[in-house]
Design a binder for these strands. Structure first.
Lengths: 184, 184
DNA sequence: GTCTATATTGCGATAGAC
DNA sequence: GTCTATCGCAATATAGAC
């Protein structure tokens, strides 16, 4: 348990990668096996079914999500900037898992939906602590979701472009609110 | 052309409905035919392939999208409120088409991606005209995308909930900006 | 643990009657 | 214009050798 077989990890990484950049339908057992460098039979030794593959991905998403929330709280640029910039373009492996899970959501895997909701709730809590206003935090979370929508659609360039454009607006709005107190 | 057969329309509506609320994989030719009340052969008379079905949906999305942009510009509550509230919960048929197209995007249909980009560009232009600031307009567009992400994931209740929560924040931010001029 | 078959199912698409 | 019947294929999963 503490040291799962290497092949298993490679299979999981291949599955996440194909789902994230070609879609779930492209991630057939054969395609995943080929990308991981094993045979179909070899894959099925580690993951007895396609569903098991999805479950494995969900488990890793939850684990990596916890780590990301910790990074977010400790980020020098602040939790808000960390959250939004990584929503548009996360260099880390979490992005691939998140995009993959978001796509899998659409073919009925309820565990993926729950895992995403779990992580999003934690991101939201960290945002609340950072801005001190739960409704503003929800707005920021929605902005992150909007950036992610483009990443999920496979247009990460557009997501990054959008983030660059709106970042100063978000900053100025937060500043204005902090200094002025703001209505409502 | 001006009066396409009724069966064709019913098939298209069934396809959009199944994709929107059960996912694209569930929308098999047989399932679509059953929901539309025709046989598989009957369906294939109108749409010779699955791809033709997708193209038909894209065409309707573009037509309905134009109509929505017109409604948005004419909305009594203002273009921003119209856009964001309908992002969370559009009572109209457009929502189904938009969600369906967003899902289809993930199985490689490039025409769906292009159609969505086309409509989104028009929404953005209408937002720009309403708020008089192109970067703020992009931020609002991203907020709409974020609300839609939840609708696309099949959790429209959550999308509506989020909109109710953040609506006053958006309003107050817009007001503050309008009266104060705002930095940047 | 990993491989090469192979069984099985479900889908898109065709053919041709009505 | 709509139907029934059927072909061909691709994908999941199994069986059993190595």
């Amino acid at each position: 348990m503490s040291r799962p077989p290497v092949a298993r990890e490679k299979v999981l990484a291949a599955f996440a990668a194909i789902v994230a950049d070609e879609g779930e339908q492209a991630a057939t057992m054969e395609a995943v096996a080929a990308r991981a460098g094993v045979s179909k039979g070899g894959l099925l030794y580690h993951f007895g079914s396609r569903e098991a593959l999805v479950e494995g991905l969900v488990e890793r998403l939850l684990a990596d999500g916890e780590a990301d929330v910790a990074d977010m709280r400790a980020a020098p640029e602040g939790a808000v900037a960390y959250y939004l910039s990584t929503s548009a373009d996360s260099p880390r492996e979490l992005n691939e898992l998140y995009v993959a899970a978001s796509r899998i959501t659409q073919t009925g895997a309820d565990s993926a939906r729950q895992a995403l909701a779990h992580i999003e709730a934690q991101w939201l809590r960290a945002l609340e602590e950072a801005v001190g206003d739960d409704r503003l935090a929800q707005l920021l979370a929605v902005v992150g979701d909007g950036l992610y929508l483009h990443a999920i659609r496979g247009d990460q360039r557009r997501a990054v472009e959008l983030w660059r454009t709106i970042a100063p607006v978000v900053t100025s709005l937060l500043d204005a609110r902090r200094s002025g107190g703001g209505p409502a």
